[in-house]
Simulated scan of single mutants.
Amino acid sequence: MTEMLNMVGQWMPRLLDGLWLSLQVTGVSLVLGIAGGLALAVLALSRKRPVRILSTVVTEIGRGTPALVMLQFVYFGLPQTGIMLEGFAAAATALTLTTAAYTSEIIRAGLKSVPQGELEASSALGISRRDSLRFIIIPQGMRIAIPSLLGFSILMFQVSSLAFTIGLPELLSQAYSIGASNFRYLEVLTVAGLLYLAVTIPAGWFTRRVERKMSQHL
């Protein structure tokens, strides 16, 4: 037991560095991806049919492409077009595209949940459609979508482990590297799994609490 604790103590700095990098990639992907998802959701509500079709096509391509394939495409495929991205930028870009596609559907559902009566009232008051979107639909729709977005954020943190396939030294990559040096894969992957749980379990608890809190006002 003492030997095991000593090994874990030796591994922990590298694993924590990997965990921090995983959180960074996830954070950047969520911030940019949710903004992109909001843009796609708003375009999907456009009165112009070509705009709606474009939004739908982009969303379906993003949702239909596995995150692993997107990572490989951005990291290995784009360089052939002259666009070179290092590991962190490639992972953040790929996961941002995946996030945008999936969150667009979550946000669109939230926007469509805004009572039609409020839109009719704003129209009767002479409020333009653009202002209705900015001040009525989007604020209320995003509030409705928050619990689902938080749940999706946990999923994207888990998906960030796929970045080990492009050599990004995130948590899973660090665990594999340590395992390759001492062949203690079971132990080091167990510790890595516990670190993932240390993030996802509190995050899941927080998500459920927010969902209960917000359901009282919706």
Rank of each mutant, 00 (worst) to 15 (best):
Asp131Arg: 15
Lys112Leu: 15
Gly151Cys: 05
Tyr102Phe: 12
Ser128Lys: 05
Ser161Ile: 05
Ile154Cys: 11
Ile138Met: 10
Val159Phe: 03
Ile138Asp: 01
Glu120Arg: 12
Ser128Trp: 08
Ala121Pro: 04
Ala145Leu: 09
Thr93Lys: 00
Leu171Lys: 03
Ser128Tyr: 02
Gln140Arg: 11
Thr165Ile: 15
Val114Ile: 03
Glu120Ile: 09
Pro169Glu: 06
Lys112Met: 14
Thr96Trp: 01
Gly141Pro: 01
Ser113Tyr: 03
Ser132Val: 07
Arg129Gln: 14
Pro169Asp: 14
Ile178Gly: 10
Ser104Glu: 08
Leu111Ala: 01
Ala109Asp: 03
Met156Arg: 04
Ser128Asp: 08
Thr98Met: 14
Leu155Ile: 13
Ala175Pro: 04
Arg134His: 11
Ile178Pro: 05
Pro139Cys: 02
Gln140Glu: 07
Gly151Lys: 01
Ala124Ile: 07
Ser104Asn: 02
Leu150Pro: 14
Leu111Pro: 06
Phe164Lys: 14
Leu168Pro: 07
Ile144Asp: 15
Ala121Val: 06
Val114Asn: 10
Phe135Lys: 11
Gly126Cys: 08
Ser161Pro: 07
Pro147Leu: 11
Ile144Arg: 14
Ser153Met: 06
Gln174Arg: 09
Ile136Gln: 13
Ile144Lys: 10
Leu95Gln: 12
Ile137Trp: 01
Phe135Leu: 11
Arg129Met: 06
Met156Cys: 07
Glu170Ile: 01
Val159Gly: 00
Glu120Leu: 13
Leu162Ile: 04
Ala124Met: 04
Ser113Gly: 14
Leu171Glu: 02
Pro115Tyr: 00
Ala121Gly: 02
Arg134Asn: 08
Val159Tyr: 10
Thr93Asp: 10
Ser160Thr: 15
Ile146Glu: 00
Ser128Ala: 05
Gln158Pro: 00
Ser161Asn: 08
Phe135His: 09
Ile106Tyr: 05
Ser122Leu: 12
Gly110Ser: 01
Gly126His: 00
Gly141Trp: 02
Leu95Ile: 07
Gly117Gln: 07
Leu97Phe: 12
Ser122Phe: 00
Ser173Thr: 14
Ala124Gly: 13
Leu97Ser: 06
Val114Thr: 04
Ile138Ala: 06
Ile144Trp: 10
Ile107Trp: 03
Gln174Asn: 09
Leu155Gly: 13
Pro139Met: 10
Tyr176Ala: 11
Pro115Trp: 00
Gly117Cys: 07
Thr96Phe: 05
Phe164Val: 15
Gln174Phe: 11
Ile154Met: 05
Gln116Met: 12
Pro169Cys: 01
Pro169Asn: 06
Ala175Asn: 10
